[in-house]
Write a protein that binds this DNA or RNA. Sequence first.
DNA 1: ATGAAAGCGCTAACAA
DNA 2: TTGTTAGCGCTTTCAT
Lengths: 328, 328
Amino acid sequence: MATIKDVARKAGVGVGTVSRVLNGTGPVSPETRRAVLAAVEALGYMPSTTARAMVTKRTQTVGVLLPDIQNPFFPMVARGVEDACRQAGYTVILLSTDWDRERELSAAALLRRQGADGAVLVSVGDAAGVHAILGARGAPVVVVDRAAPGLAVSQLSVDHYRGEYEAVRWVRSRGHRRVGFLAGPAGVDSAELRLQAFLDAMEWDPADPGLPVARAGYGFEGGQRAAAELLDRFPDLTCLVAANDLSALGALSWLARQGRRVPDDIGVVGFDDILLASLVHPALTTVRQPAYAMGYRAAELLLQALKDPGRGPVQETLRPELVIRDSC
Amino acid sequence: MATIKDVARKAGVGVGTVSRVLNGTGPVSPETRRAVLAAVEALGYMPSTTARAMVTKRTQTVGVLLPDIQNPFFPMVARGVEDACRQAGYTVILLSTDWDRERELSAAALLRRQGADGAVLVSVGDAAGVHAILGARGAPVVVVDRAAPGLAVSQLSVDHYRGEYEAVRWVRSRGHRRVGFLAGPAGVDSAELRLQAFLDAMEWDPADPGLPVARAGYGFEGGQRAAAELLDRFPDLTCLVAANDLSALGALSWLARQGRRVPDDIGVVGFDDILLASLVHPALTTVRQPAYAMGYRAAELLLQALKDPGRGPVQETLRPELVIRDSC
DNA sequence: ATGAAAGCGCTAACAA
DNA sequence: TTGTTAGCGCTTTCAT
């Protein structure tokens, strides 16, 4: 591997000069520049990001912490982040936390060790812990798709409560009164918000022990299981509202297997609007979150914070959109 | 951020000693070790991977190049790689190439700049190019899920041809004679192999212009489109064989929309055995590729090559397994 | 406009 | 067993 020294020697200049032409910092005469560029070309020289990071204290990498790379929603967020970062010359380290708080923390520690300049976080619960770890290095964090109340980090999310509330009101307006809910993972902000919105929109008492609510946990299989459980306990449900699309899809699959027609026998509603939602049959009625755009915007926020660390954290809330299709 | 110097000062020892206790290289007296560890603890010291990389020439990171992070098969491979790497203390940089040869190459260049020690590659076509780029830095590459004929890199793949061949023979044994094929992306090794196997198993002439074959390209939507096209041109098909599960799922969804019963009216067969395949209704008959295990094994091969660069590339071929479910 | 030199935080070789 | 020191490849003053 050629180094900057080799280039300098070949071009007959000092290393400082090479650095200057490569980074466009400081004045260089046209002929010198040409000579340097020629040497770079001839040697196939590529500056070492490691050495550069050593002196600049910047690695030009940002981390993305996601709960579950198997749920299409998250990769979509990741792509948004990656596209924005790549454009700005940043590399992305993608880490999956598997819905595990421990792993979320150890992933943050890994990012810190790797010298990540910042991180985009879809937290599974301990946003504060992540912020503490990365903040020690002065690395900004932006939390996406969740609220991180009281944390001095930028936040970007849809209004989960409002999205679910509107969806459920719409379900009710269709005449449904016996509606079951497939809840997301306990302790996860978005999941709790959607559950609360469901309860409120149904005007049900959260303390009531006989509520048609089952934990599905955002997964396809969880959706299948929870649908089975719910319809076993409440056979007369006319609609199932799932906390996200993947579990709604699970419910759909279980219903199909049981020979129950959707939406004629029973309605199903999701949340997220992942690609599959519009493609399955019947197409899923759901609440749209702009995953890619959110990832992209989150990265922009992060890059901004990196560029001028002075500005305080911002907080953006997007309005989710009810997408009415065929499943309810 | 505390540095090794701070630790040394606080512990009243030289930096060399600190390095020795942290890396377990060279002898240290128990008391010194204790003092150093205490200082590390007190200062919350974390060694800079950057500085370390600077001298060791190893970044302890490996890249994973995947065609499409939206297809569940690839994230599953990625998880296998990540788990194996994390265990060995390596960080993974996950890059999506979007079925684009250009991006595959630029991703490789990025890995090289980042100083990745090696890479796991699910190539979209230019494995040789990637190898050339990374090889210049002495970074080994292992190609997964594809053959890279003539390339001096380790390779790990299922026998796509055999898997598809057996699947199609089984389809025929069920009495199907008019069978359509939803082909994968052109120029991609696994896709070409499966197509060839299909043709051979059907004992059809590849040159025949009237073959019931349509490009679906490994995506869900492609599967829907190709199924529609195929059944439009060949209404009497009794079975659809898709080059992968995602496109098979697309076909399934289109068929459901058309009110065609699977498998009664028409059979569907996939390839991959992604999680969804067993969960949809009807459950998909498919050819299983052990995605996670392949990723894990590929990482092992890579780590091995990193540990002792002397050994030449190895080549492992797994036997795919026909999984008979309900769709055919 | 350009070269020389200091130093980023660490490891490894060498002395002691 | 331990401290000191020379770089790793780069950016960034500081002279010139």
